[in-house]
Nucleic acid binder design. Structure first.
Lengths: 121, 121
DNA sequence: ATAGTAGTTTTCTATTTGGTTAATTAGCCA
DNA sequence: TGGCTAATTAACCAAATAGAAAACTACTAT
């Protein structure tokens, strides 16, 4: 794709496994093994996904003994939020209060929104 | 990447050319030629980008004589906005009022946010 | 020192992506 | 009809991506 920050972020988000990993991390730190557990993927595959997330700045990995605890970093998601605002007018003023907007939307169409193990709110 | 809606949307957004096309379309309908004009790319390359955007549902193309006027579709961006809300708490309460949040942010760091020809607001 | 656990790196493969040029479709106009 | 313009499709290429298996690093524990 490309090497700018926003492109790297969107590319990292364009994979359900990686989004699920982020959703899990939104509930708190986790080791690589813990993150891998819900997926039927080899350890190297998970490692690669984490590297993509890391290079996009979406996560950071520490070290504790033989574990590499991961946690979310806010900046790239903030950049996405900022980018989104240029479509605020197009999407309607309800976008200004995403909370209200959502409440209104969900009364019409329920639907899964990619939160695998429990709401991250 | 994958074939679910959100993955297709993020994959489509993970390219600066396509984001620039969307930003242009946020200011109103445009033909393929008009969309192509700012880029040093062959017509087929633009066609392909548009197809990616179309398959993600981000744009739709009509027909008027030999032109295919493109326009934005809101649904996928709304899905992104909805997906973002699960990180609302993580990003801080200012996220609830993106407007205020932005104003606060921009007083600290200016920076381009990927809007090529004039603000799309 | 040896074995076990947690993760990463390396190597390889198949698929997808972004770009090109050339050919094609479709509509306008004279 | 023929020629022009707008755009897409086809064929091809190079680079990137997602995956697996095997080998390696680093730490723990005995």
């Amino acid at each position: 794709m490309d090497d700018d920050q926003l492109s790297a972020t969107f590319a990292a988000l364009a994979d359900p496994t990686r989004r699920a990993i982020l959703a899990r991390l939104a509930t708190g730190e986790a080791t690589v093994g813990e993150l891998a557990e819900p997926f039927n993927l080899s350890p190297p595959a998970i490692s690669k996904h984490l590297k993509v997330l890391q290079q996009a700045g979406l996560i950071e990995q520490g070290r504790q003994a033989q574990w590499r605890p991961c946690r979310l970093r806010p900046e790239p998601l903030r950049e996405v939020a900022i980018w989104m605002t240029q479509y605020r007018r197009f999407l309607g003023q309800s976008f200004d209060r995403l909370d209200d907007y959502l409440r209104a939307l969900r009364t019409q169409q329920p639907g899964d929104h990619d939160t695998p193990q429990g709401e991250a709110q």
